[in-house]
Design a protein around this nucleic acid. Structure first.
Lengths: 362, 362
DNA sequence: CCTGAGTTTGATAACGGTAACACTCGCGAT
DNA sequence: ATCGCGAGTGTTACCGTTATCAAACTCAGG
């Protein structure tokens, strides 16, 4: 007898094929507890109709076998992976990284794992590619850290059975639910603060011209100046980093009429501070500088930076909440919604009344 | 006729049960191409034994149905999810965030998706919990951004069929393969740079006492001083942020014998710079300051910071490479390995010869 | 025209869960 | 007593792949 493939009569445990040192499965638990695997499933899913005694027996069996359910199998049949997808851009920066963290920790509490797909450019193709990778892995929903309109546009093309939410960026909330910060309001806060200190007007070192967030901040700044009857200096667009701030800071420093600068973010402000310093213009005595974001160490710039604080982590958390809410909504009765998180002004040492008031603060 | 379950004669699309607006599956593709689903699978997996003509027919069918394979099903049978897990700590900071980004982009190229599990504290329980969440989701491997020994210890407890690699932190490479930066070498670079400039000795604002990375930097610093026959000032431990640097900077500023400070990272350096500035001690004329990390904007501090540059993204990429390499290794012939990435000194304006040399740079 | 090795293909059985339905009770209403 | 009903449980059928094995079809050599 060839010893191989003895068709029948063989003992049942053929179940565990030789080369499989894997953990236990539902069947094993069922056998040990003396019930059917379906009952094990019921215990696992907290189905009410299981006798208490049975439940305990099953739980005990699970414990002693150190049973872990196979999520792939579950996903296959329920079509729910309990995984959320995040599309990120520039995730090395503090803002996006914090949102990601906020999302992840909120997701964990809600019983989800997050998968990340980063895009190097914000064009439609990259975003769709990221969506594709995530949907292949059967994510239950997607949160896009979406600073540009192109992302929202791309998101509108994803199949409607994959829920999307955008966070932190300038998107069209009618198309895709969004969580965002009130950039315009934040810019107003900063500008008004400087005007209130007595500055005749405020200059602005903006972000990139094609970023909605940058534009919203420009708008808040412009409208505040306008409402106060102040002259509106030309806007200087640039990138979000200190190098770009430095460059524009040099121009601003050379203009003696400049007494207050509102920067589109803290990094730009850092560059402006350096440029002003090198030009010998004292901050805040001669020029006041205000930033945006409240990065971790901006309170230790020279001088400590007055800035608009946005709570990135909170944004992330809220976006997860919004997504879960959408997932629970009956699907045909899902309406566009937008959550706007208000920023706050953090006054530190880089802003003060202009010198001509004859009064120096600090 | 009961209208339900009309076995034959019914139009073929019986496949799509009423409440299922799902995409097409292998069976659909097979039907359209006039082959069995198994052949479709073979085409998908690039099995050699498929006639070219058949292959093309199948590919065409896949395209026209916009077929996407169901990874959950695939994972169920192959036990490979094509997903990698990342355990992260403090991922909002630039270093970890960059490593994460490096890992993700390398993973994408290798055909993997990454899932992130962050831990709020670095104790064994949190780490094991993170491992557990990841393994439940059947990740093929885990990369831990592991700044403390406790992580490595926890990793040693995970079932051997889940491969782990640590990156960026002080771990025991004999136990778990690791990718790390040469902290000691970096510290040596910084210290030697300052000694070479003519400073009699170098003070050190260290990281937290219980972080191996901080200790390695202390070691590099100490050994260099020792080898040069310089006095070794007492070490000041603290946290990694600017506030902590500021605090220690105040003490250093008050000590007139201090002419050079090596900071364990750029954020600490930022705080030290502020403290020195406020105490009226000029950098670099009176005191030189050197950081570690080369954060994005440290070139715009006041003054621009001389620092030890570590390429976080590269660390991430290398760690992924190491993990993949381990995964391809026959399992019983897997030996401990460690990759050490050398840092580089980035000389900027915050370091100069001491004043007593009578010579001022810049 | 038959044989045998190699290629191409299909049928069927896993993988580990959940869903749907059927069955067994015990018990109050008929 | 019979029926109906709900709680508790087991049976069976999937979910969409890949794996295994056998069948069918080459095409050469005898």
């Amino acid at each position: 007898m060839p010893a191989r493939k003895s068709s029948a009569e063989e003992p049942p445990p053929t179940r565990t094929t030789p080369g499989r040192p894997r953990g236990s499965v539902m069947r094993d638990v069922a056998k040990l507890a003396g019930v059917s695997h379906q009952t094990v499933s019921r215990v696992l899913n907290e189905h009410p109709n299981v006798r208490q005694e049975t439940r305990l027996r099953v739980l005990e069996a699970m414990r002693s076998l150190n049973y872990r359910r196979n999520l792939a199998a579950r996903t296959l049949v329920t079509r729910q992976s309990h995984t959320l997808g995040i599309i990120g851009f520039e995730t090395t920066l503090f803002g996006p990284a914090s949102m990601l963290y906020g999302i992840e920790s909120a997701a964990r509490e809600a019983g989800y794992l997050v998968s990340v797909a980063t895009v190097r450019t914000l064009d439609r193709a990259s975003v769709l590619d990221a969506v594709d990778r995530l949907t292949q892995h059967a994510v239950d929903g997607i949160i896009a850290i979406a600073p540009k309109q192109a992302v929202t546009n791309a998101l509108m093309q994803v199949p409607p059975d994959v829920l999307c939410v955008t966070v932190g960026g300038g998107g069209d909330a009618d198309a895709v639910p969004a969580v965002r910060i009130d950039n315009e309001g934040g810019a107003r806060l900063a500008t008004r603060h400087l005007l209130d200190l007595g500055h005749a007007t405020v200059h602005h070192a903006a972000g990139p011209a094609d970023w909605p967030e940058a534009h919203e901040r420009v708008e808040g700044w412009r409208s505040t100046l306008y409402a106060a009857g102040a002259v509106v200096p030309p806007v200087e667009f640039g990138w979000w980093d200190a190098a770009s701030g430095y460059e524009r800071g040099q121009a601003l420093a050379a203009d003696p009429s400049v007494t207050a600068v509102f920067c589109a973010n803290d990094r730009i402000a850092l560059g402006v501070l350096r440029a002003l310093h090198e030009a010998g213009r004292k901050v805040p005595e001669e020029v006041s500088v205000v930033g945006f974001d409240d990065m971790p160490d901006s309170g230790f710039f020279l001088p400590p930076l007055t800035t608009v604080s946005q709570h990135f982590g909170e944004l992330g958390r809220r976006s997860l909440g919004l997504l879960l809410e959408q997932m629970e909504t009956p699907a045909e009765q899902r309406l566009p919604s937008e959550i706007v998180v208000p920023p706050a002004l953090e006054v530190r040492a880089s802003s003060a009344p202009p010198r001509r008031n004859g009064k120096r603060r600090r």
